[in-house]
Design a protein around this nucleic acid. Sequence first.
DNA 1: CCAAAACTGTGTCCTTCGGATACAGATTAC
DNA 2: GTAATCTGTATCCGAAGGACACAGTTTTGG
Lengths: 244, 244
Amino acid sequence: MDPVDATGATQRQRLVDLLWQPPSPPRRGPRPTLTLAVIAQAGIAVADADGLGAVTMQRVAESLDVTKMALYRYVPGKTELVALMIEAGIGEPPTLPADAPWRDQLDAWARQMYDRFRRHPWAVAATVGVRVLGPHELGWMERAIAALDGTRLHGGEKLDVAVLLVGHVRNLAQQVAGIPTETPEQAMAPGLSELLRGREQRFPALLEAVASAAVQDGRDQALDFGLARILDGVQLLVTERARP
Amino acid sequence: MDPVDATGATQRQRLVDLLWQPPSPPRRGPRPTLTLAVIAQAGIAVADADGLGAVTMQRVAESLDVTKMALYRYVPGKTELVALMIEAGIGEPPTLPADAPWRDQLDAWARQMYDRFRRHPWAVAATVGVRVLGPHELGWMERAIAALDGTRLHGGEKLDVAVLLVGHVRNLAQQVAGIPTETPEQAMAPGLSELLRGREQRFPALLEAVASAAVQDGRDQALDFGLARILDGVQLLVTERARP
DNA sequence: CCAAAACTGTGTCCTTCGGATACAGATTAC
DNA sequence: GTAATCTGTATCCGAAGGACACAGTTTTGG
């Protein structure tokens, strides 16, 4: 199943080690010219500028004035490089007032995560699919779950709330990616209204919604809306659980 | 900005045409051995079997007993092939009872979309980022918006509800992809509990949640949970709007 | 009926990418 | 000092997307 290398470690285990136990500097041989952090930052710079597709070993190496193969001394492969970029890009989990109501905590949490994703739009595409989580990413999850500590939700429910919020934030960040100036609703997809033109009778409800939404103002209104709905729904459950 | 080909059409416009106006059969020359639908199905078969990464021109062409370059007679490039795969994979929007309450309609809508994504897990990864929407995909949106026709929500709000639901469904489908047997909570990420082992003091809330969630049963419980919360939240808004 | 036009599928070539391997130089431990 | 260890490099490879020219096939117009 999982490919095994010469040392007997699986690819997965090597990635886990890379993310969770940054390798100690070597005791012999020439001093390394690079570090994992520097490499990750270089990759992030490329991705921020020209998208995830532009992140190639060649390009990252060039920006660091080394050869492509030099990177492989630090990183097993491109998958691992992207994983490091995600960890660095998402960054440390936010510090939230632990004594604030859970709803305020989660609201702030979601907005800060949205901020990170907006700063690094490629991170949305990079974090699809099952993968190994790093300390930062797990720290974010921990912080969200911890916000629900006071409630009487089950463990599974707490996890589900976090998953729900992450999904919303990721989804919105993705929609806005690449269209920094317009509002999300207006530019949900390139030329939505353009597509609808000439097909009015086929998508009447959509047409009317888009037309009346175009008048709407609102930076990040879709984020606010979804967040309010989700937290309203969660609040309903929490209060229901609160009374015996 | 947008590359222009010899005929003066932009790449984007060519894709729009491909999705919305299936090209008519040629009037002269040899009969084509393939059709767009057949090619898309071949691509879907490959993706279903071995993932989106296994979808190469070569591989798809082989499965159709043609050369790689033959495909380019039908499809401008791989991007367009994937777009066709998405359209065919998502399929026609569901038929829902138009007289049912909006909540039941949206619930069924979301579950059917979840079903499609579960059948084609690669579709989640393929539909990240801004892209041109096809008739099917737009039809799904239309159907969701139409479900809210009776309510007094604004156009923008209706769109936001749809986006919210799509986000949840996509997110869940992605989590479950590749782990068909276990429950989503248990296998949110490969070896979440394995990662937590030895780091109990660093992620206490997460640890407790995972531990108590492991006992939970529940196929698709995360889907149900999120759906219920979201629709609860929407319902709150709808009823609020209903009374003057 | 026949030639020109239009179209299909193929073979060949190019570039880019991720990655394996072998090697030369630098640094440290014994 | 010498052996072990580690770094960065140069070279090579297979697979990928795609450009292009060509040969064969079918229809249209005279």
